[in-house]
């Protein structure tokens, strides 16, 4: 079966059904970028607990379903506009960026392209350089083209290597410039609107598979955690060569984010079998009376 990586998905908002379906569809690893939660936080403690969840509970929860969970750390552009709070978050970040499985600084960049957003974007580019991590850039949904170009201009101003930057949420209007300038180009498959799987197929046909990365960006809104495997299937159906399919839905993400030194294919290829009995107490992911899913010896006694 084909293996997939979803390099942009907000799993704290997803259910265990999603995890099961993702695992069945072949998703072996996920990257959860630190983002906002749909409404602005008002206390730095909320950021702290959120960041801790990304490296703690959510990673553990994913492991229970046979999925390796990585994350990126950063202050998102929307909440950068609360300057007093943003300054406190910047003080918090050094505690998290060095942790195991943190594969990038992100998602950072512009939303409304304000002065405050610019300030904290730049500060985080410097942080990424300091700790040798790639950067995941969130490009704005409004005034996208200008915002995307500006993100790249500023990154270059700070001496960043485009090969270490994933510019996300691209569309037909931005892709050429992003690829031409040497960046990785992320594409988010949105069901119903914006970038659908069909458009993605066309882009891969036109630009080839080099440095293109497909993701679901599934979160608390209308989104599809199976967008990556579904798009891969559509690409196959539309005659895109298997090797190209694998590059845009697996290999490229691995190559880009493993620049961090924190992501390795062996993390899932040599993972121990899923064993929900071993790691969980009876009252967390498994509720009373549920039979745990166990791969491996079939003579296991559920006790």
């Amino acid at each position: 079966m084909s293996m997939y990586i979803d390099p942009h998905i907000h799993l704290v908002s997803r259910t265990t059904d999603d995890y099961e379906a993702m695992q069945k569809a072949g998703i072996v690893a996920t990257i959860e970028p630190a983002f906002w939660l749909g409404q602005p936080r008002t206390e730095v403690g909320s950021f702290k607990d959120y960041f801790s969840t990304l490296v703690g509970w959510e990673r553990f929860r994913a492991s229970q379903f046979g999925i390796v969970h990585y994350c990126t750390m950063g202050l998102n552009s929307k909440e950068a506009n609360n300057i007093a709070l943003a300054e406190q978050v910047m003080e918090l970040l050094p505690l998290y960026v060095g942790k195991e499985g943190v594969v990038a600084i992100g998602e950072i960049g512009y939303d409304d392209q304000t002065e405050a957003e610019d300030r904290f974007y730049r500060e985080q580019l410097e942080l990424a350089k300091e700790v040798d991590l790639p950067v995941l850039i969130h490009t704005p949904h409004r005034d996208k083209k200008k915002g995307t170009y500006r993100s790249m201009d500023v990154a270059e101003e700070h001496g960043m290597d485009p090969g270490w930057i994933i510019v996300d949420h691209n569309n037909e209007e931005t892709v050429k410039e992003v690829l031409d300038r040497g960046y990785w180009a992320g594409f988010t498959i949105y069901p119903h609107t914006k970038m659908g799987s069909e458009r993605m197929v066309e882009i891969v046909k036109q630009y080839g598979p080099e440095r293109i990365i497909v993701n679901s960006a599934a979160d608390w809104g209308i989104s599809d955690p199976l967008a990556v495997p579904k798009t891969a299937d559509l690409m196959r159906k539309m005659g895109i060569p298997e090797e190209h399919v694998q590059m845009v839905t697996y290999r490229n993400a691995l190559t880009a984010f493993s620049l961090s030194g924190q992501m390795d294919e062996n993390d899932w290829l040599q993972a121990p079998p899923i064993d929900q009995t071993k790691k969980l107490s009876g009252n967390s992911v498994l509720r009373g009376g549920q039979v745990p899913r166990v791969e491996g010896p079939a003579d296991r006694v559920e006790n």
Partner: peptide, 8 residues
């Protein structure tokens, strides 16, 4: 307060 699993 900020530890991951293995740090804990």
């Amino acid at each position: 307060e900020t530890a991951d699993m293995h740090e804990h």
